[in-house]
């Protein structure tokens, strides 16, 4: 089955190239092309696609404003002719960032990022749990969350990190992000210990997925997670540093 997408792009030549590349790949079905954010949002309210190719600077609202207003979490590939948005792109957990104009080979690299399977050969770090006895089944390898009008099963080690977003939390995995109505505090009680650790007031990370740490930033599967004051000591204890 093909990955469904829309293209949000105000420059016709750029959109035509993207459409051509999608067709050539045989992997992507383009459901539509929109010249501005409002038209794209109106479409997405009716039909949720798997992937957005999203320009940033467009007349009216920007691509980031579209991301702020999305009610679900498709994969995102940003397309822009500026590199200065790279940091913001990381904050939005986009899959890739294509600088226009880009070649077919670069386009394919971006597709590989969204299709990358979850690595399963990473060792699970077993540590003593600090949760209280009434916490439900901390040793289970999976959990269920209410998302998209159903209970969605998530394998714990597939979760990259969990981010607080006001009254919701976002579970970020390799294949998809899930929003659920909860607080990080509530989840912290249920998840802290084992492979998860709260590293910031807005983030719980899966320590198996950490690639490296530089200063007060965790680099995790292409994402940058800040380490909050007061969380660094506990993180260091849990990292198995030799």
């Amino acid at each position: 089955m093909k990955i469904t997408c829309i293209i949000v792009e105000d420059i016709q030549i750029a959109a035509d190239f993207l459409k051509k590349f999608c067709d050539k790949s045989g992997l992507i079905e383009v459901r539509g092309h929109f010249l501005n954010v409002e038209d794209a949002l109106a479409y997405l309210a009716q039909d949720q696609v798997d992937l957005l190719f999203l320009d940033i600077e467009m007349p009216g609202a920007t691509g980031f404003e579209l991301l702020d207003r999305l009610t679900y979490s498709p994969r995102i590939i940003l397309t822009t002719s500026k590199t200065e948005y790279a940091f913001d792109a990381f904050q939005y957990h986009v899959s890739d960032y294509l600088k226009k104009p880009f070649t077919y080979n670069r386009f394919l690299e971006a597709l590989q990022k969204i299709a990358r399977p979850v690595p399963t050969d990473l060792p699970i770090v077993h540590t003593a749990t600090t949760t209280s006895p009434q916490v439900p089944s901390p040793d289970m390898e999976f959990l269920f969350i209410k998302a998209e009008d159903k209970l969605v099963k998530l394998v714990k080690n597939d979760i990259f990190f969990i981010e607080s977003m006001r009254d919701y939390v976002k579970f970020v995995t390799a294949g998809k992000n899930y929003m659920t109505y909860s607080t990080l505090k509530n989840l912290e009680e249920k998840l802290n210990g084992g492979i998860f650790l709260k590293v910031h007031r807005s983030f719980i990370v899966n320590i198996n997925k950490i690639d490296d740490i530089r200063g007060n930033t965790i680099y995790l599967q292409g994402n940058q997670i800040p380490i909050g004051k007061g969380h660094k000591d506990e993180l260091v204890k849990r990292l198995n540093i030799l």
Binding site: I11, E57, P101
Partner: peptide, 13 residues
């Protein structure tokens, strides 16, 4: 700034 940005992309292609 916005309009020159669009032209910039066009020149690139």
């Amino acid at each position: 700034r916005t309009s020159i940005h669009k032209c910039k992309t066009l020149f690139g292609y």
